[in-house]
Amino acid sequence: MPHISIRAEPLFRLYGFVVTNTLVTSAIFLLLFFGVAIYYYKQAAQNYGKRSRLFYFIHYVNRTLYNFLSPILGSKMRLVFPFLGALFFFILLQNWFGLLPGVGSIVLHIGEGAQKETVPLLRGNTTDLNTTLALGIFAVMTIQYYGVRFLGSGNYLRKFINIGNPLSFFVGILEIVSEFSKVISFSFRLFGNIFAGEVLLTVIAFLIPIAASFPFLILEIFVGFIQALIFTLLTAVFINSAATETH
């Protein structure tokens, strides 16, 4: 049975820079993701009737997501949707990429002697805390950006720094902590759910070798979808509340 480690396993060093297996996976994934994105962009520039079925499928998913999120954001949606859509597709496809056959099951033997380790060559990118932390920080920064954009910098920053009376000063500090807790909750929820799924699949596959992991695989596809959706929805909800004037 492979050793389960919470941190991503280092594969090799490139001029002192540690290359982990999640980094390799994310590089492969990003190439594919950019390929699909450029394909969609090129198809959108063509005339009607010349577009492919894949284009219409992606377009349909985009439209569904737009209609799904627009009750939350109202007319702010037009500005925010490119970011939210990119976030949704990025997280969703990364979650699903980790479930593909070969990801996690192709192993390498690294090291010599007593330090010999069995390490998977590829590992789903959202099972690395670095990735989800980056996504969380990025989402929270964007929430601040849209807060300033919609309310104006003076109005928005008054939420955090208010020297009117001692109570509102303290509430401002609590607001700052609340923003940081958004980063933590975003990143740990995504990481926890996806990593737990990977561990579950591994354990089930070693308990009962034949067919038992199939329902869990379907569960993981569902969890990956739900987590991507929750991440996007929460970002939308927080952007909306950041753009609303507080009293």
Binding site: S75, K76, L151, S153, I230, L233, V237
Partner: peptide, 25 residues
């Protein structure tokens, strides 16, 4: 920096808000 003018009509009763908040709670 001035704030953007926008129409602030968002539906507070959307069930997805509550679902997402409870997943995050």
């Amino acid at each position: 920096m001035e704030g953007l003018k926008y129409d602030n009509r968002s539906n507070k009763n959307s069930p997805y808000r509550i679902i997402s908040q409870s997943f995050n709670l």
